[in-house]
Nucleic acid binder design. Structure first.
Lengths: 210, 210
DNA sequence: GATGTTATTGAGTGTGCGACCAATAAGCAA
DNA sequence: TTGCTTATTGGTCGCACACTCAATAACATC
């Protein structure tokens, strides 16, 4: 951690400072929520006066949107890398679900709920949410289309199948703030089950290919 | 609307005033969001000073929880009446989906997103959300169990099927604040499709029984 | 009509927020 | 070293919020 008391001013290049601010904001967004992304809170995290954050983000709303965008796209890259390694589409998809079912994914679910709600009031964030939704849809869609081309998956409309899987994931994630964790196996596995059914895979294929 | 300028004090019985406050709060929650349920906003809606709201709800958090509970349970009663009329379980279920697919349901979806997010910070609301989730699950579960008893539906575990349907509905509702409305038919119908599949109904049964 | 209970008001406290701006100093260039 | 650009500070303003509490007036009861 950086020392809380600032003896001397540390002057950084605009690019570096801006990146630092966005990083801190993304972390706060992920751990404490988007409404905690305030000038004061981020300034405190960086050992810097709130006014400085204002200097880089004249409108606080922009920073909030940036924080969400940064956190969401980083997570997407971790979950579904843009350039895929040599593994099969099935393996990539299996790995995706393994992450998305894990407890560590709860933070991401919380962030999505947070962003979807807050977009009701903040238009800049709303646009960013739409952008990220498109990115996630695109990335998963690409993987599925690739699987179809290779003959691993079978579906009439890869686009529809993609959205169906994402809808189930959203539904499962909706309870990230309330659920006590005692969910029937058949429910936890809904995303995988949906994928296997819609992609013409025999049940158990995804779990087996890890 | 009530006159905005209050010439004379209007003194009401505690029960009546409290009911009036909860009603106003539920309306604001549904139309403007739970964070707009403030002492000032509700006082304004009733043509009354904010202090009076404090008098009935010493902690504002309780009012927010009450507003959500009131709105959610009213909606549940409209969607799935506790005492069902003579119609078949299939008909009741079909009516439920017809409502839940309609545009008017967006307000409810928004409210649920709102409540699920806000429960991250407000424990009283969190308990209320859990309570309402149980109520919705119970009400839909009862209908499904009744349908199974009557031989209309077929499922090994009515409880699991109930939750699966609700998960899909939550997933579809998650986008209430952002979606532009251009969703493929196969996605919009996911809830009905899921229900028909999990309840052993032939496709189209629910749409046909209205 | 007088009286007492209490629903309702009015005024004030403290907190956290975004936004604004003049003053300051860090670090690069000459 | 000197100077200049500008990143950074420090302070202020206005707003909205929940919460507190003494003063007030509506209304039921006698």
């Amino acid at each position: 951690m950086s020392s809380s008391v600032q003896g001397k001013r540390i002057r950084k290049s605009p690019a570096a400072r801006r990146a630092e601010i966005v990083d801190a904001a993304a972390t706060v967004a992920l751990t404490e929520g988007l409404e905690c992304v305030t000038l004061r809170r981020i300034g405190e995290a960086l050992g810097v006066r709130p006014g400085l954050i204002s200097h880089y983000f004249p409108s606080a709303e922009d920073l909030v949107a940036e924080a969400f965008g940064s956190a969401a796209s980083a997570e997407l890259d971790a979950l579904l890398p843009a350039e895929r390694s040599g593994a099969t589409a099935t393996q990539h998809l299996a790995r995706f679900f393994a992450h998305a079912e894990g407890e560590a994914y709860d933070d991401i679910s919380r962030l999505w709920i947070n962003a979807r709600h807050l977009s009701r009031y903040r238009s800049v964030l709303r646009d960013r949410v739409a952008e990220q939704e498109a990115a996630w849809r695109g990335r998963l869609g690409d993987l599925i289309r690739q699987g179809v081309e290779r003959g691993e998956f079978h579906t009439d409309d890869p686009g529809v199948t993609t959205v169906q899987i994402l809808v189930v994931l959203d539904g499962l994630g909706a309870h990230a703030n309330t659920d006590t964790g005692n969910r029937p196996e058949a429910v936890t596995r809904m995303a995988v089950t949906t994928a296997e059914r819609e992609l013409g895979l025999t049940s158990g294929t995804l779990a087996a290919s890890l």
